[in-house]
Structure formats: C-alpha cells, structure tokens
Write a protein that binds this DNA or RNA. Structure first.
Lengths: 224, 224
DNA sequence: AATTCAGGTTAGTCTCGATTAACTGTGATG
DNA sequence: CATCACAGTTAATCGAGACTAACCTGAATT
C-alpha cells in the first residue's frame, strides 16, 4: 500500500494556464499536432540531444515536415522551453498537492518520494531532457524554469524540515538534490529496454533507497 | 577516519598508456598546451555544453586561438573523447585498486563510496560533461567509454554481491546506478559557489546517504 | 651557421540547419 | 456561395562554425 501512484495528481501534459479545448475541427487538429510535436520533441531530444535534432527531424516525427513547426512554436528553442516549463510546473503542482494534502510529515515525505519516482519512471525522456539540455534555453526561459525548480525543492525542504527539525535548510536542500539524482538515475540506466518490466522492480527499490538516504542521521560529531 | 581521500589513487589526469614526459623544451610546452586545452574543455563544456563551445572559444581559453587545436587533437570530437575516455579509465583504475586492496567487502564498499564522492567533488566538470555530452561522441568512442563504464559498474556489483549475497546482479546494478546518480548530483547543485566550503559538508553527507541507500534491505515481500 | 620541422597564425572554404518568403488548399464565417 | 485566415508546402536566405590552405617563426638537429 505504500507504492501507489499518488493518483490525485494528473500525470498528463497540461496547458499552463487553464485553456479551453478548441471546439472547432481545425482547432482540435492543431492542438493534436502541437501535442504530437511536443511528444516527438521529448523523445528525440532525449535520445539525441537538442542540438542533434533538426527542425526537419522534429517535424517529420510529428507527421509534418520542416518549417511547419513555426505554425505552432516561435522556434526550436520555444519547443524546448514549453517542454521544460510544463514539466517543472507539473512537478511543482504535484509536489504542492502532496504537501498540502498530507498532514503527517513522514507520510508526506513518503508520498513525495513516490510521486518523484512515478514521474521519473513515467516520463524518463522529459527528465533526461530537463537535466541535459537546460542550457539550451534562453536566459529568460532558464530563469523561469529555475524558479519553478527552486520552488519544488522548497516543497521538499519544508517537509524535510518537519522530519529533521535539527538539520539546517542548506543541508536539507542538498539531501533533496541528492535524492533527485538517485531517483532520476533511471532514465540513464533503464534506457530503452523493456520499461514496463524493469519499472515493476525499480519502483519499490528506488523508493526504499531514497527514503533510506533521506532519513540518515545528521552527520555525527564522533563517528559513534 | 572513514572519510579519507583514498590517497593511493592518483587523482591527476594521466595519459592512458604509460607515456614518458618529453624532455625537450618544445615537447614540454606542447604537453602543457595539451593539458591546458583539456582543462579548458572540461570547464567550458561543463558550463555551456559541447555544442555551444566553438573551437575558437576553446583555443582562446588555452591562450591560443582557433585552429591551433588541430595541432593537438584531430578535431573537436577528439577533445571530448580524450576527456571522457580518460575519466572513465581513471574511475575504473581507481575502483579496481580499491576492490583489489580491500579484502573486507563492507570496507571495500565504503572505500568505493569515498572514492566516487571524492571524484565527484574533485572533478565536477568532467562528471557533468560525461553524463551530458556523451552522445556527442562518435559511435566508436561511445562504445569505448561504455565499455569502461560497464567495467566500473561491475567492480561495484562484485563488491555489492559480497555484501548482499541474496540479491541478484540486475538489482545490484540498479543500486549502483542510483548511487552514482546520488553522488554525482553535486555537480548539478553545488554549481560554481564556494566549492571548498560546501565540499566539507557535502562529503560526509553524501557518503552517509550513499551507504544508507546501498545497504537497504532487499524489497520485502510483506511490507514488514 | 644552415636546414628542418612542428606549432602558430590568418584567411578562406563548405556544410548544415534555423529561419523566412512565396504560394496553395481548405475549413470557418457571413 | 464568396471570402478569409491559416496550417502546410517548397524554395530561398543567412550565419555560424568546423575544418583546410598557405604562410611564418623559432627551437632542434646536423
């Protein structure tokens, strides 16, 4: 009962601002194309890296060829930006939801871990792109994403502070980062294999490792 | 006494095959330039990513401008390849040394963790380049690096197998990868600040988190 | 001292790929 | 039904940057 999918959080791509789904046939088609482009971008960027993917490749992967991408995004960078801002926002929203809806700190921490593991196993491509191609964003987009990420980290730090009242925020922040590194390692290792197969084993393992790492005592003065 | 620097392992850049240092003044200068280029490459690539660094930038950072790089490397990719092959080889050598010189499995595991933490804190740039720009290597170089990395992982798995005789290799491999993710998270978080300052706190923390994560019991059938 | 030769330099060359221009066909709209 | 607006298309344009050519200079070597 501890490794559930934290269901209340919508795991689907969502438009940042609440946007009504276009009713007209044409508008629907456009939205589909847009999602197809984003999805293609996620897997292409993850596989080859932002710079090794041409707009031609990207368009082709979405069943459209070349400069058609400009009908949906202002440029190549904008596609990346949309991808990364969206994922950062999703993480933040999900994390806040968990934090706000789980009074017990330790339970909240468990749920945060589960949430992050689900995310890493569910969208390894986006995770990979996020920490590999971040620097291909414009300065502006970089700071936007950084702000969201910082907020997400703070959600973790706030919960961690309740679990470890004696540890200062700087160390808790480092614990959070290290834990993200641990959990997000899967996109690097579980590459392209039978994802479903490995995920079943990976999920509980990653959760237990993450919790164990997070719960470690603060560095003892004497080696005990 | 547990967080020493694993001193026997030379942490300096080393030429793969045992190469005599050139005696002639010119030869010495050339070697210096070469090292300057590699060092510049490490920090530039880490900061901006392989593709955002031009040969002009790279040369300039080493006090030489532009195509002079071709006097030392066959091309831009070759610089990256040298960097990554060297670091992979260093890790493998260091890991093997630890494994071979530490009979007690648990002690060996501790030393492996210390070694990896030292490496991550000591050469964050190279670590960062390694898992960000790997795909910019030629197919050939990729497989060379992969082979070295696989061997390094096997060193860990072999030690882990002695500590956890009941766990199968696949899971141990995943534990190792997750631990690398945890330890290597520092290049991402401890960016460009007072490195020495943070490192003093980071080292013991990362070591304890890594150990705790690695020592977790195998997934219990019942939630205990 | 004369001669090589390799590390540097600057001025091309050449390709790739992002962006833009000029058109086209077809749902939406009146 | 006539028009419009707009997703797409193909054919330029344009800049960046890796690599090459042609020369230069001074340490090594004889």
């Amino acid at each position: 009962m501890s490794s559930n999918t934290v269901q209340p959080v919508p795991a689907t791509q969502a438009v940042p601002t609440t946007q009504a789904v276009p009713t007209t046939q044409r508008g629907r088609a456009k939205e589909n194309r847009r999602q197809a482009l984003l999805s293609a971008a996620a897997s292409l960027f993850a596989l080859n890296g932002f710079n090794r993917v041409s707009l031609e490749d990207l368009g082709a992967a979405a069943g459209v060829s070349g400069p058609a991408v400009y009908r949906h995004f202002s440029g190549k960078q904008a596609v990346l930006a949309d991808l990364l801002v969206t994922v950062s926002q999703e993480l933040l929203d999900g994390g806040r939801h968990v934090a706000d809806s789980t009074p017990d700190p330790l339970a909240a921490l468990r749920r945060l871990v589960e949430f992050q593991v689900d995310f890493a196993l569910g969208k390894p491509d986006v995770i990979r792109v996020q920490d590999r191609d971040f620097s291909n964003l414009s300065e502006q987009d970089q700071s936007a994403v950084r702000t969201l990420q910082r907020s997400y980290v703070e959600v973790w730090v706030d919960i961690l502070a309740k679990v470890h009242p004696e540890i200062d925020a700087a160390e808790l922040r480092m614990r959070a980062h290290a834990t993200f590194g641990l959990i997000n390692s899967t996109p690097h290792s579980v590459r392209s294999h039978g994802r479903r197969l490995a995920a079943g084993v990976a999920r509980p393992l990653l959760e237990r490792m993450a919790l164990a790492a997070l719960m470690v005592d603060s560095t003892p003065a004497t080696q005990r």
